[in-house]
C-alpha cells in the first residue's frame, strides 16, 4: 500500500489489538490503536478486533467512544469487525447480556457464542468466492453467527451447514472468524481498499 494513505485505527480498549495492528502494518498501513475520541478523529477507517463484545460495549460507553463511533459509521467510515467486532457492528443482537448495546451499521442479526463452549471452537477452510483462491483458513473462537441479513447485505461466506460467517454492506465488513491469527490478510486488504476508495 502507498505510504500516502491516511492512517487507520484498531479499537484498542480490549481484545486482540496487537494481532490486527501487525497485519495492517505488514500491509504497509499506518495503523494505530484507538482508545479515545481524539484518536478516532485521526483515522480514516477502523478495525474492531476479537474480544468480549459485552466488555467492548461497556468500555466504549465509559470512555466516550460510542457516540463518535456511531457518527463515523453513519458517515460512511470503513470498518472491519472480527468476532466481537462483528457483534458490535450488528444492528440487532440475540442473547446479549442485560443492557448490552451494539454500534450497529450492518443490517444483520447476530447471535453470540453460537457454537457452544471453548472445546467446540474450531478451525476450518472456507471457500470464499469474493476472495478467490486459495481457501480462507478460518479460526472460530467462541464465535458468533449471522442469523439474518437485510437486502443490502452481501453474504461473503457460509459454513457447510449454511451458517453465515462473513458479510459486507458498503464499507462495512465483518467476519465471525479471526484472519488475524491465521496468517490471512485478504480481509484486511479489502478493508484498506475501502479506506483508499474513500480517501
Amino acid at each position: 500500500m502507498a505510504g500516502s494513505q491516511p492512517p487507520v485505527g484498531v479499537f484498542a480498549l480490549q481484545g486482540d489489538v496487537r494481532e490486527h495492528l501487525a497485519v495492517l502494518t505488514a500491509l504497509g498501513a499506518d495503523a494505530r490503536p484507538v482508545r479515545r475520541p481524539e484518536e478516532l478523529e485521526q483515522v480514516a477507517g477502523l478495525v474492531i478486533p476479537g474480544g468480549e463484545s459485552s466488555v467492548m460495549d461497556k468500555l466504549s460507553r465509559l470512555f466516550g467512544l460510542r457516540d463518535p463511533l456511531q457518527q463515523r459509521i453513519a458517515a460512511g467510515m470503513p470498518v472491519y469487525g472480527t468476532c466481537a467486532g462483528l457483534i458490535m457492528l450488528a444492528e440487532r443482537l440475540q442473547d446479549g447480556i442485560a443492557g448490552q448495546q451494539t454500534l450497529g451499521g450492518l443490517d444483520i442479526v447476530a447471535r453470540r457464542n453460537a457454537f457452544g463452549t471453548q472445546s467446540d471452537s474450531f478451525e476450518t477452510d472456507l471457500h470464499i468466492p469474493a476472495l478467490g483462491d486459495p481457501p480462507v483458513h478460518a479460526v472460530f473462537i467462541r464465535a458468533p453467527v449471522v442469523e439474518a441479513v437485510g437486502d443490502q447485505v452481501a453474504v461473503l461466506a457460509r459454513l457447510e451447514g449454511g451458517d453465515i460467517v462473513a458479510v459486507e454492506q458498503g464499507a462495512l465488513l465483518a467476519t465471525a472468524f479471526h484472519p488475524e491469527i491465521a496468517h490471512e490478510d485478504r480481509f484486511h486488504r479489502r478493508f484498506l481498499e475501502h479506506v483508499a476508495a474513500r480517501a
Binding site: 481484545g15 486482540d16 474480544g51 477452510d125 471457500h127 473462537i141 457447510e160
Partner: peptide, 23 residues
C-alpha cells in the same frame, strides 16, 4: 469444504488472545 478441527493450539491460545486487556 473441509472438516472442522477442534482443540488445536491456535484455537486454545486464540481464546487467551481475545481476553487481552481484560479482567
Amino acid at each position: 469444504m473441509t472438516e472442522k478441527t477442534q482443540g488445536t493450539s491456535r484455537v486454545k491460545r486464540g481464546l487467551a488472545d481475545m481476553l487481552k486487556g481484560g479482567v
